Amino acid sequence: MAEAKILKAPGMAKCIGCYSCMLACARVIHNDYSPRRSAIQIRSTGGLQSSFLAVICRGCLKPACAEACPAEALVERPGGGVIFKKDLCTGCRKCVAACTVEAIFFDEDEKKPIVCIQCGTCTRYCPHQVITMEVRND
């Protein structure tokens, strides 16, 4: 069995803010064309010489979001992160509050969280290989 990989952003200095990763996640995973429906968010650090930062799931080994979910809609994923069982989700937002890196967003239309499932779709659309899927080394 292949080792589970997690999302990393080692090349943020190369990010040009094209949002291709966000659009890919929204389109392929969430069937939407809005970057607001992406589990990865690219943000500007601001200022005249701003750079970008990626708000991404860190693939926690003991995810606080899964522990906080009373409906067991989020369960630990082997290798880090979570598996999201959307049909079990009640929309209580406890996972959003529990995420230590604030990488779970809430879809007000669907009343469900937008959770990274560590699928790697975003990495395939990044033109500068800013984000990658890597075997956990910690």
Results as ranks from 00 to 15, higher is better:
Met1Ile: 12
Ala2Ser: 12
Glu3Met: 15
Ala4His: 07
Lys5Glu: 00
Ile6Ser: 04
Ile6Met: 03
Leu7His: 06
Lys8Val: 12
Lys8Asp: 08
Ala9Asn: 08
Ala9Thr: 09
Gly11Gln: 01
Gly11Glu: 03
Met12Asn: 05
Met12Ile: 08
Met12Val: 09
Cys15Ser: 10
Ile16Gln: 13
Ile16Phe: 10
Cys18Asn: 11
Tyr19Ile: 11
Cys21Glu: 01
Cys21Ile: 00
Cys21Lys: 01
Ala24Asn: 05
Ala24Leu: 09
Ala24Thr: 04
Cys25Gln: 06
Ala26Glu: 03
Ala26Arg: 02
Ala26Phe: 04
Arg27Gln: 08
Val28Arg: 10
Val28Tyr: 07
Val28Ser: 08
His30Met: 12
His30Glu: 14
His30Cys: 03
Asp32Phe: 02
Asp32Cys: 09
Tyr33Leu: 13
Ser34Lys: 06
Pro35Asn: 06
Pro35Gln: 08
Arg36Cys: 11
Ser38Ile: 03
Ala39Thr: 01
Ile40Gln: 05
Ile40Tyr: 06
Ile42Asp: 02
Arg43Trp: 01
Ser44Lys: 09
Ser44Met: 07
Ser44Thr: 13
Gly46Lys: 04
Gly47Asp: 08
Gly47Arg: 11
Gly47Leu: 09
Gln49Asp: 14
Ser50Lys: 11
Phe52Arg: 09
Phe52Met: 07
Leu53Asp: 14
Leu53Met: 13
Ala54Asn: 08
Val55Arg: 04
Val55Cys: 03
Ile56His: 13
Ile56Pro: 02
Ile56Tyr: 11
Cys57Glu: 00
Gly59Thr: 04
Cys60Phe: 08
Lys62Ile: 12
Lys62Leu: 08
Pro63Val: 13
Cys65Arg: 14
Cys65Pro: 05
Glu67Ile: 15
Pro70Gln: 15
Pro70Ser: 12
Ala71Met: 13
Ala71Ser: 14
Glu72Ile: 14
Glu72Tyr: 11
Ala73Gly: 07
Ala73Pro: 00
Val75Gly: 05
Arg77Lys: 15
Arg77Gly: 02
Arg77Val: 06
Pro78Val: 15
Gly79Ile: 04
Gly79Ala: 04
Gly80Cys: 02
Gly81Tyr: 03
Val82Glu: 07
Ile83Val: 15
Lys85Val: 12
Lys85Cys: 10
Lys86Gln: 13
Leu88Lys: 11
Cys92Thr: 13
Cys92Ile: 13
Cys92Glu: 06
Lys94Glu: 15
Val96Ala: 06
Ala97Leu: 13
Ala98Pro: 01
Cys99Met: 07
Thr100Ala: 11
Thr100Lys: 12
Val101Ser: 09
Ile104Leu: 07
Phe105Glu: 01
Phe105Val: 09
Phe105Tyr: 07
Phe105Met: 10
Asp107Asn: 09
Glu108His: 10
Glu108Arg: 14
Glu110Tyr: 08
Lys112Asn: 12
Pro113His: 06
Ile114Arg: 01
Ile114Cys: 05
Val115Trp: 04
Val115Thr: 02
Cys116Ser: 04
Cys119Gly: 02
Gly120Phe: 00
Gly120Trp: 05
Gly120Leu: 00
Thr121Asn: 03
Thr121Ala: 02
Thr123Ala: 08
Arg124Asn: 09
Tyr125Gln: 11
Pro127Phe: 00
His128Cys: 10
Gln129Gly: 14
Gln129Lys: 15
Gln129Tyr: 13
Thr132Phe: 04
Met133Gly: 00
Val135Ile: 14
Val135Lys: 15
